[in-house]
Amino acid sequence: MAKVAFLGLGVMGNPMAGHLQAAGHQVTVYNRTASKAEAWAAAHGGSMAITPREAAEGAEFVMACVGNDDDLRQVCTGPDGAFAGMATGAVFVDHTTVSASVTRELAEKAVAAGLGYVDAPVSGGQAGAENGQLSVMCGGEAADFDRAAPVIDAYAKICRLMGPVGAGQMTKMCNQIAIAGLVQALSESLAFAQKAGLDVEKVVEVISQGAAGSWQMVNRHKTMAAGQFNHGFAVDWMRKDLAICLAAGDEVGAPMPVTALIDQFYKDVQIMGGGRWDTSSLIARLTP
């Protein structure tokens, strides 16, 4: 068992930190809104800190799951940042979906301070975090990954090293690109079924057993058809991720015309007032 700090207690980080504590690790949490850290500590029996640095002091591993590039820089650097509190040889594991460029920037700072750094974005959504069934895609040195992987296993269904620092983030972009296209296709399929007067449940029962089947179809078709979009991963965050994907696509020369189009569809959902709806809400554009 390890001494672990966890920075960021949103819809993903809160249950992830809980799984670490339940697995027997000694967990100290930090959250920008201190009341959330207090509530987590009361519920799970761990401890809380008022700064990332304080949370990281004495920790063998520091996990982060915050909002974006700027949030990650803020919890890592500066006099109150985690890097300032971490001991030589400790490993920083970033579960935030951020740009590969900020990942490499912070990894350089970590290595210069004698720290390990693993970028480890996750997929599986709020339900995956709550059930400890996340897919974790990692980038970093093999030695750092090998040390961190048994700790990550507390909330992972699969955890793989994809390559050097930044490879985890690039793999997460592949994930988001695939999801965007899939959710739009599923939205169009369900909307078509409704407007054609078909029984959506019967349609899904049949087509989910063939080549059209997907996790999204099985787990989201009922709520999509009912116009219920409260599954946690918000449209606002998806647009943040897709902006990272599109910028990286330009950088590596990978055209993504469908991804760019669906990003604009998510913009339409934001204009409809659905910025905090989950990503399955693309169907709302088709079924006003």
Rank of each mutant, 00 (worst) to 15 (best):
M1T: 14
A2I: 04
V4M: 07
A5D: 07
L7E: 03
L7N: 03
V11W: 15
M12H: 04
M12S: 06
G18M: 04
G18R: 01
H19Q: 03
L20C: 02
L20Y: 00
A23E: 14
H25C: 10
H25S: 09
V29F: 00
R32F: 08
T33Q: 14
T33P: 05
K36H: 01
A39P: 01
A39Q: 07
A41L: 02
H44K: 10
H44I: 00
P52G: 11
E57Q: 14
E57N: 12
F61H: 09
F61R: 02
V62T: 11
C65M: 11
C65A: 09
V66W: 04
D69H: 10
D69E: 10
D71Y: 14
V75P: 00
C76D: 04
T77I: 09
T77W: 15
G78L: 08
P79N: 14
P79A: 14
A84N: 09
M86D: 10
M86W: 06
A87W: 12
H95G: 03
S99T: 14
A100V: 12
R104H: 09
R104Y: 06
R104F: 06
L106H: 02
K109W: 13
K109N: 05
A110N: 10
A112D: 13
L115P: 00
G116C: 13
V118C: 07
A120Q: 03
G128W: 02
A129F: 03
A129N: 04
E130H: 06
N131I: 00
G132P: 04
G132L: 00
Q133P: 08
S135K: 14
C138S: 08
D144I: 06
F145C: 07
A148C: 15
A149P: 01
Y155Q: 06
P164H: 13
P164D: 10
V165T: 10
K172M: 10
C174P: 02
C174Y: 07
Q176Y: 15
I177Y: 08
A178V: 15
A178K: 12
I179H: 09
I179G: 07
A180S: 13
V183H: 05
Q184K: 11
A185T: 04
S187C: 02
S189P: 00
A191G: 09
A193Y: 14
A193T: 15
A193S: 15
Q194D: 02
G197D: 12
L198F: 11
E201I: 15
E201Y: 14
K202H: 10
K202T: 13
G210W: 15
A211R: 12
A212Y: 07
S214K: 13
S214A: 12
Q216H: 15
R220P: 12
K222I: 15
M224F: 03
A225E: 07
A226S: 11
A226G: 07
G227S: 06
H231A: 12
G232Q: 04
V235W: 02
V235H: 00
K240H: 07
C245H: 03
L246A: 05
G249R: 04
D250W: 09
M256S: 13
V258M: 13
V258P: 11
V258D: 14
T259D: 01
I262F: 10
D263C: 08
K267F: 12
Q270P: 09
I271D: 00
R276Y: 09
S281Y: 03
R285Q: 02
P288S: 11
